[in-house]
Write a protein that binds this DNA or RNA. Sequence first.
DNA 1: CTAACTATTGACATCGATAACATTCGTCAA
DNA 2: TTGACGAATGTTATCGATGTCAATAGTTAG
Lengths: 335, 335
Amino acid sequence: MASKPPVSLKDIAEAAGVSTITVSRALRGLSLVTPDTRRQITEIAHRLGYVPNQVASSLRSRKTGLIAVVMPTVAGSIFSDTVNSISNELGKAGYQIIIGESSYDIEQEQAVLEALVQRRPDGVIIAGVNHTRTSRELLSAMNVPVVEIWDMTEDPVDSLVGFSNRHAAYEFTLALIDKGYRRFAIASGPMERLNRAQQRAEGHGEALKFKGLRSFGSIVIPHFMGMLSSGETLLKFVKDNPELDCLFCTNELIAIGATVQCRRAGIKIPDEIAIVGFGDVEAASIIDPPLTTICIHGAAMGQEAARIIRDRLAGKTEERKILDVGFDIAWRGTA
Amino acid sequence: MASKPPVSLKDIAEAAGVSTITVSRALRGLSLVTPDTRRQITEIAHRLGYVPNQVASSLRSRKTGLIAVVMPTVAGSIFSDTVNSISNELGKAGYQIIIGESSYDIEQEQAVLEALVQRRPDGVIIAGVNHTRTSRELLSAMNVPVVEIWDMTEDPVDSLVGFSNRHAAYEFTLALIDKGYRRFAIASGPMERLNRAQQRAEGHGEALKFKGLRSFGSIVIPHFMGMLSSGETLLKFVKDNPELDCLFCTNELIAIGATVQCRRAGIKIPDEIAIVGFGDVEAASIIDPPLTTICIHGAAMGQEAARIIRDRLAGKTEERKILDVGFDIAWRGTA
DNA sequence: CTAACTATTGACATCGATAACATTCGTCAA
DNA sequence: TTGACGAATGTTATCGATGTCAATAGTTAG
């Protein structure tokens, strides 16, 4: 464990007989150095095994090359498309992402944000538009581009790339009514989870009301313990409420769980009961029957958000934007 | 966009009439300051909206609080358990992870590593034991704890938490033969993908040989384009080779795809053909029939790796370790 | 009463890079 | 010939914190 002292610009400068700033310029490719000098410096740097210290660079230049990404969770499949496309899009431009998990809780989100901010990210992408007052202040005070995603509002902190959860649920419900379904119950994941599930429920309710229908019940999975486990709860609910003809799930994973468990219990889907989800994760299309659901453009949101950040940091655009990526209905086998 | 200058320790020091170092100590909770002084400093810091600059702190203290995590991909479900458990376990100790994707390629891995190293992470967790020479040198030269995971070898760079892919495939194959299967074909994802798939194939082959059986064919999905798409290719393969009684997939996702597509095509599983996977992602248990597969302890590996890093950084242990987390066979519906 | 000690606080250097400004030198137009 | 100019390089200050060692004040023992 000899642990030789790390090589710095200074060491290279001494070896090359030039000043540190020349080395810095040479290695950054700043076209301010003679090709010959650069070649020599590069060679020495390589020989000494030089590894640039981005920490020092960040401190001085006030650019960390980090983008903070705050999502409710990255554990499941729901947000992973978004995170991946952010990472890919920003990676192209040389940025690294640092992820924080808000666990569907704005207090937790604030805590995460407070930790991330200390690393002085060059930009922030954050899920949702509902934050604590302190979080909003923090985001504004950072003086870096901020993009909220996965939701819609009139007054974002800065830019916004999302869709209206309420509107999607509303339209989806109307379409289901058009298809002939009348006796809906609504199933949700933990309701305290920000207010996206809440908005979906409201959109659903408004559509029912608009069509003069009443709800035939609702059930909440208070603690999400996996798809199959939630599915068992929902199977019981479905059995207990035989009058239902459609289970409207505001959460994709519980919809998948419900479908799998109902099918295993021998319930015919969609003849005995239709089940629909919200989100379209990959697993939705491999179950039997494949899930009819709202297709959220998670990857597109990530990509657009990343682009906005990238362009803002490159000085290309300075305007804040609001972008609605909409949604699609994926009609498959469960409704 | 007024962009006030950021608040630093100095500003607080001036406002409180003390030196910056005292502020630093107070805010770090170093028990070297009078409770009264601390209270006052904390109050002022809060009032000024002070946000500690971890970049500066990292530079001076040579501790970034970052752990680099290098995985083949984080896009799918395969490695996400591992990454999540790493993140959770390290999060408890106040560390943040920065992720790099090697895309199943050791040259790419090296490139990613070279980028990550510049951020001076306090530790590295990296999938696989096969790296370029330069990567290995880089890892050693960093003088931070390194844990390789998801594989097994005699001479890790530093510590290792994994399992033997070869051995798992070997044992699994033997167990399948015990169950009565005799006419195997092997299906793999892209083979250039490091050598884990290769090792699995070898373990499978050795078991066949040991039992005096021959292979009835093999197929490679050269470019993975999703579960269902791979499944179509495998369905065709299965139809073309009606003598097979078991399709041994070295990749979980293609096993799922094959199962789904075969079932949709009306092929009886496992009666007409058995299909097995390798990895046990969550989707494996929701398909019909649920997939019989090797259960890899991805979360356990992540957690153990994170613990090793954490303990090493806390000075608790200094020994390098090799830990084999083994594997389980999950007998479900497809074999 | 003084030495010895502990508890607090401070001064200064430093981590490794880069921004800002300065300098040198050769070239070329006036 | 001179001065303006641009290319290449250098000098110095600085980013914002913390490690190290020094200093001050208050307390206790002898």
